[in-house]
Design a protein around this nucleic acid. Structure first.
Length: 254
DNA sequence: TAACCAAAGCTCTTTACCTCA
DNA sequence: TCTGAGGTAAAGAGCTTTGGT
Protein backbone atom coordinates (compact mmCIF):
# COMPACT_ATOMS: atom_id res chain seq x y z
CA UNK A 1 0.00 0.00 0.00
CA UNK A 2 1.18 3.41 -0.81
CA UNK A 3 0.49 5.67 2.13
CA UNK A 4 0.84 8.68 -0.06
CA UNK A 5 -1.91 7.67 -2.37
CA UNK A 6 -5.17 8.32 -0.57
CA UNK A 7 -7.23 6.77 -3.31
CA UNK A 8 -5.50 3.47 -3.26
CA UNK A 9 -5.12 3.44 0.46
CA UNK A 10 -8.77 4.10 0.90
CA UNK A 11 -9.83 1.54 -1.62
CA UNK A 12 -7.95 -1.08 0.25
CA UNK A 13 -9.66 -0.35 3.48
CA UNK A 14 -13.17 0.34 2.32
CA UNK A 15 -13.87 -2.06 -0.46
CA UNK A 16 -14.57 -4.90 1.87
CA UNK A 17 -18.27 -5.09 1.74
CA UNK A 18 -19.47 -2.09 3.63
CA UNK A 19 -20.82 -0.17 0.71
CA UNK A 20 -23.11 2.05 2.67
CA UNK A 21 -21.50 5.37 2.26
CA UNK A 22 -23.68 8.31 1.76
CA UNK A 23 -23.38 10.35 -1.38
CA UNK A 24 -22.54 13.42 0.54
CA UNK A 25 -19.59 15.18 -0.92
CA UNK A 26 -17.94 18.12 0.64
CA UNK A 27 -18.67 20.50 -2.14
CA UNK A 28 -16.62 23.17 -0.53
CA UNK A 29 -13.50 21.12 -0.60
CA UNK A 30 -11.65 21.37 -3.80
CA UNK A 31 -10.28 17.91 -3.33
CA UNK A 32 -12.96 15.36 -3.98
CA UNK A 33 -11.04 12.60 -2.36
CA UNK A 34 -12.31 9.50 -0.64
CA UNK A 35 -11.91 11.08 2.71
CA UNK A 36 -14.47 13.63 1.73
CA UNK A 37 -16.87 10.75 1.49
CA UNK A 38 -16.35 10.18 5.15
CA UNK A 39 -18.80 12.98 5.55
CA UNK A 40 -21.41 10.42 4.59
CA UNK A 41 -23.36 8.00 6.69
CA UNK A 42 -20.45 6.40 8.42
CA UNK A 43 -19.07 9.58 9.75
CA UNK A 44 -22.46 10.64 10.91
CA UNK A 45 -22.85 7.42 12.84
CA UNK A 46 -19.45 7.71 14.38
CA UNK A 47 -19.87 11.28 15.32
CA UNK A 48 -23.19 10.62 16.95
CA UNK A 49 -21.74 7.69 18.75
CA UNK A 50 -19.13 9.72 20.47
CA UNK A 51 -19.99 11.08 23.85
CA UNK A 52 -20.97 14.69 23.89
CA UNK A 53 -18.08 17.05 24.22
CA UNK A 54 -15.60 14.22 24.00
CA UNK A 55 -13.28 16.18 21.86
CA UNK A 56 -12.34 18.41 24.67
CA UNK A 57 -10.33 15.58 26.02
CA UNK A 58 -9.80 14.20 29.44
CA UNK A 59 -9.08 17.58 30.92
CA UNK A 60 -12.61 18.35 31.86
CA UNK A 61 -11.54 20.88 34.39
CA UNK A 62 -14.02 23.41 33.13
CA UNK A 63 -16.72 24.37 35.49
CA UNK A 64 -19.31 23.90 32.83
CA UNK A 65 -20.00 27.58 32.40
CA UNK A 66 -19.11 27.51 28.75
CA UNK A 67 -20.74 30.78 27.93
CA UNK A 68 -18.70 32.43 30.57
CA UNK A 69 -15.57 30.86 29.30
CA UNK A 70 -16.17 32.06 25.79
CA UNK A 71 -17.12 35.48 26.93
CA UNK A 72 -13.89 35.88 28.82
CA UNK A 73 -11.79 34.58 25.99
CA UNK A 74 -10.44 31.11 25.39
CA UNK A 75 -9.68 29.10 28.45
CA UNK A 76 -7.06 27.17 26.57
CA UNK A 77 -3.77 27.39 28.30
CA UNK A 78 -0.19 26.39 28.23
CA UNK A 79 1.85 24.91 30.94
CA UNK A 80 5.12 26.54 30.27
CA UNK A 81 6.61 26.45 33.71
CA UNK A 82 6.47 24.55 36.90
CA UNK A 83 5.03 27.59 38.61
CA UNK A 84 2.13 27.53 36.23
CA UNK A 85 1.62 23.84 36.95
CA UNK A 86 1.65 24.52 40.62
CA UNK A 87 -0.76 27.37 40.22
CA UNK A 88 -3.12 25.28 38.20
CA UNK A 89 -2.84 22.39 40.58
CA UNK A 90 -3.58 24.51 43.56
CA UNK A 91 -6.24 26.80 42.23
CA UNK A 92 -7.56 25.25 39.06
CA UNK A 93 -7.13 26.31 35.49
CA UNK A 94 -9.82 28.95 35.27
CA UNK A 95 -8.54 30.66 38.34
CA UNK A 96 -5.05 30.60 36.91
CA UNK A 97 -6.35 32.26 33.80
CA UNK A 98 -8.19 34.81 35.80
CA UNK A 99 -5.10 35.57 37.79
CA UNK A 100 -3.16 36.08 34.64
CA UNK A 101 -0.79 33.23 35.30
CA UNK A 102 -2.00 31.49 32.19
CA UNK A 103 -2.35 33.83 29.31
CA UNK A 104 -5.30 33.65 26.97
CA UNK A 105 -4.30 31.85 23.85
CA UNK A 106 -5.15 34.56 21.40
CA UNK A 107 -3.00 37.10 23.11
CA UNK A 108 -0.03 34.79 23.02
CA UNK A 109 -0.49 33.89 19.40
CA UNK A 110 -1.12 37.24 17.97
CA UNK A 111 1.12 39.39 20.03
CA UNK A 112 4.03 37.26 21.06
CA UNK A 113 4.38 34.27 18.84
CA UNK A 114 7.99 33.49 19.64
CA UNK A 115 7.99 33.91 23.34
CA UNK A 116 7.48 30.25 24.12
CA UNK A 117 9.01 26.99 23.08
CA UNK A 118 8.19 25.68 19.61
CA UNK A 119 5.91 22.98 20.96
CA UNK A 120 3.08 24.88 22.53
CA UNK A 121 0.55 22.49 23.87
CA UNK A 122 -2.83 23.95 24.43
CA UNK A 123 -6.06 22.38 25.47
CA UNK A 124 -9.15 23.66 23.81
CA UNK A 125 -12.01 24.64 26.02
CA UNK A 126 -15.25 22.72 25.96
CA UNK A 127 -16.95 25.54 24.18
CA UNK A 128 -14.26 25.71 21.53
CA UNK A 129 -14.30 21.98 21.01
CA UNK A 130 -18.05 21.96 20.81
CA UNK A 131 -18.09 24.60 18.11
CA UNK A 132 -15.37 22.82 16.20
CA UNK A 133 -17.31 19.56 16.43
CA UNK A 134 -20.44 21.22 15.13
CA UNK A 135 -18.48 22.68 12.28
CA UNK A 136 -16.93 19.32 11.53
CA UNK A 137 -20.35 17.73 11.36
CA UNK A 138 -21.31 20.31 8.76
CA UNK A 139 -18.18 19.81 6.66
CA UNK A 140 -15.12 17.71 7.32
CA UNK A 141 -12.86 20.09 5.42
CA UNK A 142 -12.72 23.84 5.46
CA UNK A 143 -12.05 26.36 2.80
CA UNK A 144 -9.96 29.40 3.60
CA UNK A 145 -12.85 31.64 4.47
CA UNK A 146 -14.46 29.11 6.74
CA UNK A 147 -11.17 28.51 8.44
CA UNK A 148 -10.60 32.17 9.14
CA UNK A 149 -14.16 32.74 10.25
CA UNK A 150 -13.96 29.86 12.65
CA UNK A 151 -10.60 31.02 13.91
CA UNK A 152 -12.00 34.46 14.59
CA UNK A 153 -15.03 33.02 16.29
CA UNK A 154 -12.94 30.81 18.53
CA UNK A 155 -10.14 33.29 19.05
CA UNK A 156 -7.65 30.85 17.62
CA UNK A 157 -5.20 31.02 14.78
CA UNK A 158 -6.37 29.68 11.43
CA UNK A 159 -3.50 27.24 11.59
CA UNK A 160 -4.87 25.84 14.84
CA UNK A 161 -8.27 25.36 13.31
CA UNK A 162 -6.64 23.67 10.35
CA UNK A 163 -4.64 21.36 12.57
CA UNK A 164 -7.70 20.53 14.61
CA UNK A 165 -9.58 19.49 11.49
CA UNK A 166 -6.64 17.43 10.31
CA UNK A 167 -6.49 15.58 13.58
CA UNK A 168 -10.25 15.24 13.71
CA UNK A 169 -10.29 13.62 10.27
CA UNK A 170 -7.56 11.29 11.39
CA UNK A 171 -9.55 10.30 14.46
CA UNK A 172 -12.63 9.72 12.35
CA UNK A 173 -10.69 7.53 10.00
CA UNK A 174 -9.22 5.57 12.85
CA UNK A 175 -12.63 4.97 14.33
CA UNK A 176 -13.92 3.98 10.95
CA UNK A 177 -11.11 1.50 10.55
CA UNK A 178 -11.90 -0.01 13.91
CA UNK A 179 -15.54 -0.36 12.99
CA UNK A 180 -14.62 -2.02 9.72
CA UNK A 181 -12.26 -4.36 11.48
CA UNK A 182 -15.01 -5.49 13.81
CA UNK A 183 -17.39 -5.99 10.91
CA UNK A 184 -14.85 -8.05 9.03
CA UNK A 185 -14.24 -10.19 12.08
CA UNK A 186 -17.93 -10.90 12.34
CA UNK A 187 -18.11 -11.58 8.63
CA UNK A 188 -15.21 -13.99 8.93
CA UNK A 189 -16.92 -15.84 11.75
CA UNK A 190 -20.11 -16.09 9.74
CA UNK A 191 -18.24 -17.52 6.77
CA UNK A 192 -16.46 -20.01 8.97
CA UNK A 193 -19.73 -21.17 10.38
CA UNK A 194 -21.19 -21.45 6.91
CA UNK A 195 -18.19 -23.45 5.81
CA UNK A 196 -18.58 -25.83 8.72
CA UNK A 197 -22.24 -26.25 7.95
CA UNK A 198 -21.59 -27.00 4.27
CA UNK A 199 -18.85 -29.46 5.10
CA UNK A 200 -21.14 -31.26 7.45
CA UNK A 201 -23.85 -31.33 4.80
CA UNK A 202 -21.40 -32.69 2.29
CA UNK A 203 -20.40 -35.45 4.63
CA UNK A 204 -24.01 -36.41 5.15
CA UNK A 205 -24.66 -36.52 1.42
CA UNK A 206 -21.57 -38.60 0.87
CA UNK A 207 -22.71 -41.10 3.42
CA UNK A 208 -26.12 -41.33 1.77
CA UNK A 209 -24.80 -41.88 -1.78
CA UNK A 210 -21.30 -43.22 -1.59
CA UNK A 211 -21.11 -44.08 -5.34
CA UNK A 212 -22.07 -40.64 -6.55
CA UNK A 213 -19.08 -38.75 -7.99
CA UNK A 214 -18.07 -36.02 -5.67
CA UNK A 215 -17.72 -33.40 -8.34
CA UNK A 216 -21.41 -33.48 -9.14
CA UNK A 217 -22.23 -32.37 -5.62
CA UNK A 218 -19.72 -29.57 -5.48
CA UNK A 219 -20.96 -26.18 -6.64
CA UNK A 220 -19.05 -24.64 -9.50
CA UNK A 221 -17.75 -21.90 -7.30
CA UNK A 222 -15.99 -24.45 -5.13
CA UNK A 223 -14.14 -26.13 -8.01
CA UNK A 224 -10.47 -25.36 -8.48
CA UNK A 225 -9.60 -22.81 -11.13
CA UNK A 226 -6.78 -22.59 -13.57
CA UNK A 227 -4.51 -19.85 -12.24
CA UNK A 228 -3.89 -18.34 -15.67
CA UNK A 229 -7.28 -18.38 -17.36
CA UNK A 230 -9.55 -19.08 -14.37
CA UNK A 231 -11.33 -21.91 -16.12
CA UNK A 232 -12.84 -24.58 -13.95
CA UNK A 233 -10.86 -27.76 -13.73
CA UNK A 234 -12.09 -30.50 -16.11
CA UNK A 235 -14.81 -32.48 -14.36
CA UNK A 236 -13.75 -35.79 -15.86
CA UNK A 237 -10.43 -35.65 -14.10
CA UNK A 238 -11.06 -33.95 -10.83
CA UNK A 239 -8.24 -35.66 -9.03
CA UNK A 240 -5.95 -36.57 -11.89
CA UNK A 241 -2.27 -35.75 -12.17
CA UNK A 242 -1.20 -32.28 -13.26
CA UNK A 243 -0.82 -33.13 -16.96
CA UNK A 244 -4.50 -33.87 -17.23
CA UNK A 245 -5.88 -31.09 -15.12
CA UNK A 246 -6.78 -28.82 -18.03
CA UNK A 247 -7.40 -31.12 -20.95
CA UNK A 248 -9.39 -28.67 -23.03
CA UNK A 249 -7.28 -25.70 -22.13
CA UNK A 250 -6.54 -23.39 -25.07
CA UNK A 251 -3.56 -21.73 -23.50
CA UNK A 252 -0.12 -23.10 -24.05
CA UNK A 253 0.95 -21.51 -20.80
CA UNK A 254 -0.90 -24.18 -18.90
C1' DT B 1 -0.94 24.22 -25.79
C1' DA B 2 2.61 22.28 -22.97
C1' DA B 3 6.02 22.72 -19.43
C1' DC B 4 7.48 24.62 -15.29
C1' DC B 5 7.10 26.49 -10.70
C1' DA B 6 5.30 28.07 -6.32
C1' DA B 7 1.71 28.05 -3.05
C1' DA B 8 -1.80 25.81 -0.63
C1' DG B 9 -3.81 21.92 1.26
C1' DC B 10 -4.03 17.11 2.27
C1' DT B 11 -2.62 12.57 4.54
C1' DC B 12 0.38 10.07 7.32
C1' DT B 13 3.57 9.68 10.92
C1' DT B 14 5.85 11.20 14.84
C1' DT B 15 6.63 14.01 18.88
C1' DA B 16 5.50 16.28 23.05
C1' DC B 17 2.48 17.36 26.51
C1' DC B 18 -1.40 16.56 29.66
C1' DT B 19 -4.52 13.84 32.44
C1' DC B 20 -5.85 10.00 34.93
C1' DA B 21 -5.90 5.50 37.05
C1' DT C 1 4.67 10.56 44.70
C1' DC C 2 5.71 7.96 40.71
C1' DT C 3 4.53 5.78 36.48
C1' DG C 4 2.52 4.00 32.34
C1' DA C 5 -1.33 4.40 29.16
C1' DG C 6 -4.31 7.00 26.48
C1' DG C 7 -5.76 11.28 24.29
C1' DT C 8 -4.60 15.05 21.54
C1' DA C 9 -2.29 19.44 19.74
C1' DA C 10 1.36 20.34 16.84
C1' DA C 11 5.12 19.62 13.57
C1' DG C 12 7.38 17.58 9.59
C1' DA C 13 7.69 14.90 5.30
C1' DG C 14 5.92 13.93 1.07
C1' DC C 15 2.29 14.12 -2.27
C1' DT C 16 -1.47 16.36 -5.23
C1' DT C 17 -3.88 20.14 -7.07
C1' DT C 18 -4.22 24.65 -8.83
C1' DG C 19 -3.15 28.93 -10.80
C1' DG C 20 0.24 31.92 -12.84
C1' DT C 21 3.95 32.55 -16.25
Amino acid sequence: MCPMDPDRAFDTSLSLGLGSYGDQEDHESKIKKPLAKLGGNWVACLTIGLPGGMACGPGGSASGDEAGMMASGPASSFSNSSSVKREKAEHGEEEAVERGVVSPRAAIDVEDEDEFSPRKKLRLSKAQSSILEESFKAHTTLNTKQKHDLANQLNLRPRQVEVWFQNRRARTKLKQTEVECEMLKKCCETLKEENRRLRKELQELKSLKPTTPVYRQVPAAALPLCPSCERIRHPEFPFSNESRLWPAHPSAAC
